[in-house]
Design a binder for these strands. Structure first.
Lengths: 345, 345
DNA sequence: TTGAAAGCGCTACCAC
DNA sequence: GTGGTAGCGCTTTCAA
């Protein structure tokens, strides 16, 4: 037995004894149809379990009402949260979402973009990952609607961001305010990712602000295989802290890295925050369940996603965008992983 | 300035001075075209930056080579991992993936299914969530290709599963083998979710196996708002363990619940595994970074996803499925959250 | 070796 | 109030 036959508009028209245009109009409320006729058409459509073909409609309308979201690694709760925000406003606006997991692969990203651009999708949002400027520039030249989230390239491109530089600078000052003078920094490889490198620069600026000279020995830089950030954070810490002096405070570029650092520090025999204070970045759902609960710099992830989708909606409708460069606020969330230093040096 | 004009097959044909059928054949290698003509066509196509319209092709071919994945909550690493497996084999088979986050909402799920079925998608995979038998049954009657992952309804539906009953039974026996006699169970609301309720039944059977009578006071059941499982695990534990006696061992129906339990137990002042042994279910990436690293029952999540997508591919091609009921193996991963009991009662 | 044209299932313009 | 039909951009059959 085959899949039950799909009926089309012609079948409905025939059965209801009207023309297909009347069927179309009746079902779409796109012009007046006599109540009687209309209800008959609706009944027939119901009977036949008729559903208009999305593809045919798409061909006519030149849109499938679908957008693509490019994420570097679906496993991170950061992406999941942003996705959630995007999805929520997409759904209420009757848009579908295609998810593309790029695994931090710029070539792959560009390839999929090429493929999807062929009138399949109406727009795209890129969440974090490598800057991939070439790909984005090409998209922009094609006048293809897109929004960048947590990915900074230039003011010319619609972007939803936080001020990473400022946020990290503030984090340093926050620690300073608690008496910390010995502040290390843990980051993943930041090459090709301006949002990440700006965190690093913010760290250095913060150091300058508080009059402490930058010491490269206190900076831990992970590899570029960022698929398992926690693992990466763990490995880098184990490697660099083996034997060497561990700073009294550690700022991690992401909560995931911080989680890895937790494990390493404990394995080395250090207490958090007794021996080392740790502060993360992102405020992931899991962070408050770490032991101790992780103090962190919050990014408004869902809001960033929702904001991006709203902007994309405008872009796709050809509306004028008043402000294509949105900076949302970060906030330091104080939990248990940072302690005050009593005997200030 | 408008988006740069999209050229279509007609434009290419005109510019290359051939018919559109020749263009189509040349570009698709679907019949012989003189080498000279072919190269000319390709050059012109290149020049015009021609990309065949996916929608038009889709209308002809009656497929967009797209599947939908329904997940209950994208934030959980369980779903992320399965999604990754699906995505990997989808991509190598030239399929796109639409992601639908249902937020554990059965009505929403059904609505989206209805919408997407309209020839937009060729198949679907449902990952966990509520059983939603009605929706699935309808799909089956329509002969629409789909696969269930970690969602058990009946043998009639293509499913990728683990033996949850057996896995939990084994977990109980594992604890017994280490000397445990006082074993509690933490689960989310399992109504409408057979895979979850079978874990519970496995727990009870395990108890029977080792000759211990079931004590409902040792069972903690969370609410049905499962959006934040960790939070749920935390809250239920705090509520039920406040004052009352805490079992010496606790099995959690998921790692996320276990993570929440960790926080609660510590807050109560209990040590893991000194005072309470904890074992989870799923083996999420984050679980080894908990403190102590969580012992757990591993589900092969990515493999489940990949397996599902392969089966779906077969289904969509109308192939005969030899085995539409795949049971993958679980495995107990021993880490630091379970201790041996010395003075066995 | 190639071209003409039907037709996928719809929407919307033009008639009446 | 409703019907006829062109046409969205492609694939594929038939014909030459």
């Amino acid at each position: 037995m085959n899949r039950s036959k799909r009926y089309n508009i012609k079948d409905v028209a025939k059965k209801a004894d009207v023309s297909i245009s009347t069927v179309s109009h009746a079902l779409n409320d796109t012009r007046y149809v006599k109540a009687e006729t209309k209800s008959k058409i609706k009944k027939v459509a119901e009977q036949l379990n008729y559903r208009p073909s999305t593809i045919a409609t798409g061909l006519r309308r030149k849109t499938l009402k679908t957008i693509a979201v490019f994420v570097a690694n679906i496993e991170s709760q950061f992406f999941a949260k942003v996705l959630k925000g995007i999805n929520r406003v997409a759904l209420t606006n009757d848009y579908h979402t295609i998810m593309v997991n790029t695994f931090y692969d710029q070539i792959e990203e560009e390839k999929v973009v090429e493929k999807l651009k062929n009138q399949f999708i109406d727009g795209a949002v890129f969440v974090s990952g490598f800057d991939n400027k070439g790909c984005i520039q090409k998209l922009s030249q094609d006048r293809f609607p897109f929004v960048l989230v947590a990915r900074k390239i230039s003011r010319g491109f619609p972007s939803i961001l936080v001020d990473n530089f400022k946020a990290l600078r503030e984090a340093v000052c926050y620690l300073y305010g608690l008496g910390h003078r010995d502040i290390g920094y843990l980051t993943m490889d930041y090459r090709g990712r301006k949002t990440v490198s700006e965190r690093f620069e913010g760290y250095m600026q913060g150091l300058k602000d508080i009059g402490i000279s930058y010491n490269p020995e206190k900076v831990l830089i992970g590899g570029s295989r960022m698929i398992d950030e926690m693992e990466e954070g763990y490995l880098v810490c184990m490697k660099q802290f083996g034997g060497k002096k561990v700073p009294k405070a550690l700022i991690a570029a992401t909560d995931n890295l911080a989680a890895g650092a937790y494990t390493a520090l404990k394995e080395i025999g250090l207490r958090i925050p007794g021996d080392v204070s740790v502060i993360g970045f992102d405020n992931l759902p899991l962070s408050k369940f770490l032991d101790p609960p992780l103090s962190t710099v919050k990014q408004p992830k869902e809001e960033m996603g929702a904001c991006a989708m709203n902007m994309l909606l405008d872009l796709m409708e050809g509306n004028e965008i008043k402000n294509k460069w949105v900076l949302l606020d970060t906030k330091i969330i104080e939990r248990g992983s940072v302690s005050e230093v009593k005997n200030r040096g």
